[in-house]
């Protein structure tokens, strides 16, 4: 264990929250996420074989997920470097590998400090406050994990009921649900300002354009359409910032 004697509170918190043992303890949950994904992959490939699905389809599906996630993962990568500085390396690694975005975790860490009556990162923020912050993050994440762990089968029944076995309606239902969710997410971005609104519009227009023109001739490109749209959206938004700000 680290010798904390003679250290200020800030130094203590920094030393302890980056102690090597926490990489191992945080790693358990990170590894569990990988294990879950591996189990589902095994199940998917086995089922695909059993029902004689074209073996190209599952492989392609995995590749699309893997490739399309690179863009958003780069965003997570950068946010994480910032979060490591404020909540410690191991905890940032754990929290951004599972449910809860950077803003959520920072809120939880701050709430922990507030409950102690101090500010995150100040000299009054002791190891006890660090513990409250860590408890708050775990308790917050627990909400989603427990609810889905327990109630997901009921949600499946609910969807069956709402769809009423009408497969055509189920297709519309899934699309309408996604439109609602992404409408909500986009509304949040639009309210942030012109730069974000431009990113939303450029992302939407370029995605639709790429999917309906180039990809019609070269279907292989579809896998990269999300990445292309993300880059185009970013270029337009950054361009606006450079020119008008």
């Amino acid at each position: 264990m680290e010798n904390l004697a003679g250290m200020s509170n800030i130094e203590q918190v920094q030393t302890v929250s980056n102690a090597p043992i926490f990489w191992v303890l945080c790693g358990i949950t990170v590894a569990l996420s990988a294990v879950q994904a591996i189990l589902y992959m095994r199940q998917s490939f086995a089922t695909a074989k059993k029902v004689n699905l074209d073996p190209k389809i599952p492989r392609e599906a995995f590749r699309i997920g893997f490739i399309s996630a690179i863009g958003p993962a780069l965003g997570v990568f950068i946010v994480m470097v910032g979060l490591m500085a404020s909540i410690g390396g191991p905890m940032a690694w754990l929290r951004l590998s599972i449910i809860g975005a950077a803003a959520t975790e920072l809120t939880a860490a701050n709430v922990g400090a507030e409950a102690c009556g101090v500010t995150l990162g100040s000299e009054q923020y002791t190891l006890v406050c660090l513990a409250v912050s860590w408890f708050t993050m775990a308790l917050n994440g627990m909400g989603w994990l427990l609810f889905t762990g327990v109630a997901t089968p009921s949600l499946e029944k609910l969807r069956d009921k709402v769809s009423g076995g009408d497969m055509k309606w189920l297709g519309v239902l899934s699309a309408a649900c996604s439109l609602g969710i992404f409408g909500y997410l986009n509304a949040g971005e639009i309210h942030k300002g012109i730069g974000n609104t431009i990113a939303v519009l450029a992302g939407a227009v370029s995605m639709v354009a790429v999917v309906n023109t180039v990809c019609k001739k070269h279907p292989k490109l579809l896998e990269y359409s999300l990445g292309i749209a993300m880059i185009v959206g970013m270029i337009f938004a950054i361009g606006y910032d450079q020119l008008f700000k």
């Binding site: 958003p72 780069l74 990113a199 993300m230 938004a237």
Partner: peptide, 11 residues
């Protein structure tokens, strides 16, 4: 901006 563009693209 990365998230904004992805949200827009999917929508």
């Amino acid at each position: 901006y990365a998230s904004s563009a992805i949200f827009g693209a999917t929508f």
